[in-house]
Simulated assay, not measured.
Amino acid sequence: MEIIYARQPLPVSYKKSIFLAGPTPRSIGVQSWRPEAIRLLEAAGYDGVVFNPEDEKYDSLNSFEKDEQINWEHKCLDRADCILFWIPRDLATMPALTTNVEFGLYVNSGRVVLGAPPEAPKNYYLQFVGRKEKIPQADTLVGALYLALKMIGEGAYREAGECEVPLNIWRTPYFQSWYGKLKSAGHRLDGAKVQWVCRAGKEKGFLYAYALHMNIWVDGENRNKTNEVVVARPDISSVLLYRRADDYLDSRLVLVREFRSPACNDGGFVWELPGGSSKDQIDWLTTAVNEVHEETGLKLDRQRFEKVETRQLIGPFSSHRANLFAVELTEAEMADMDARRGIVYGDKTEYGGEMTYVEVWRLRDVLSGSLVDWSQVGMILSVLAP
């Protein structure tokens, strides 16, 4: 275990990290809770980094050092794999006013554990918000530390700029796929700052999306790119169900119409190829087969799915990719799809619900209108264009 005290240099590599957030004594006569937390972590065999915002030896801070202290804490909070809030609040000696602010800044990060002894006053609001945001909570320090260690698990080795990517993002396959491509191109991650995360599901246990403000050294340009944000979400499988015609513009294809909040067209819905992602991280072909059945009602043998290609969808904005498959339908199957217009499909058990409607389009109608977005048009033409 490596303890990093207030304003000390940050480690250049580690597998896991915990920030001990909570009230700090402001006078020598008041006992801190952090030494006991460190003792308990050591007894539990914790072998990671502990960010301790207290000095190794108590000393009052001048105004310049206060700025340095705040900046140091923010850097540690931004990168910590778990932020453990233990709040033994005492309004006279440890009022924990800064703790309230820090909790508000990171409550939605997916990296917070909240704990407080039952007798500590003025914690109800934080606990209420914690329940609302599905944050693990405990009423003993031992219990809170157990939850922190459970959150971190085995950790993952990171060094240099990688340390600024917390575990809950680092572990996602969509971060790793993006990062693998970055490294294979010869670029280097020199730093990152989490702007936001979106946690999905009733228990908010699935990290659906995130945004990282990046600091990347660009190979071949001898400079660092620091003015962009990478938005990421799980990659998807998309499936073109089509029936080719002699004139390729008369080829027919299946689109699903679905309401999606970002839709920005005259129809108010999104028209897209059947497809989606799976939080269970099953293989892309299985995802493709399942999504076609879920969104159109059509059951197809997986042997009929032809893998086309994997490409990024919106390069300047988002890192997520589509794994494109294609299936040529029989005339009877295409007629069946056309007959299903108006029938509601989709996974209605999803958070918020999914309702999809099957529509059969001719390629010339896709190209002549503006309802189908450019990424969908590109996937369609990659199969049907002569």
Rank of each mutant, 00 (worst) to 15 (best):
M1S: 07
I3P: 07
Q8W: 04
F19M: 13
S27V: 11
G29F: 09
V30D: 12
E36S: 13
G48I: 03
D55A: 14
E56C: 05
K57C: 08
K75P: 02
A80F: 03
L84K: 01
F85D: 05
I87M: 09
L91T: 09
N100Y: 02
V101N: 07
Y106E: 09
G110I: 11
R111K: 15
P117E: 10
E119M: 13
K122W: 08
F128E: 10
V129S: 08
R131H: 12
R131D: 14
P136G: 04
A138T: 03
G143W: 00
A144F: 06
L147W: 06
A148R: 07
L149K: 11
K150G: 04
G153E: 04
R158H: 06
E164N: 09
I169H: 01
R171T: 11
F175T: 10
F175R: 09
S177Y: 05
L189P: 06
D190Q: 13
C198F: 14
A209P: 09
Y210H: 10
W217L: 02
V218G: 06
N227L: 06
V229I: 14
P234E: 08
S237H: 08
L240C: 01
Y242H: 15
R243E: 11
Y248N: 05
D250N: 15
R252I: 07
A263Y: 03
G268D: 04
F269G: 02
V270C: 10
E272G: 02
S277A: 12
S278A: 15
Q281S: 12
W284Y: 15
L285S: 02
T287N: 15
H293G: 04
H293S: 12
H293T: 05
G297W: 04
G297Q: 00
R304V: 00
E309W: 10
I314P: 02
P316T: 14
P316C: 05
H320K: 12
R321V: 04
A322L: 03
A332H: 10
A332C: 00
E333W: 01
M337W: 05
E354K: 12
R364N: 01
R364Y: 09
S368Y: 00
L371F: 11
D373F: 07
W374L: 12
V377C: 11
A385P: 01
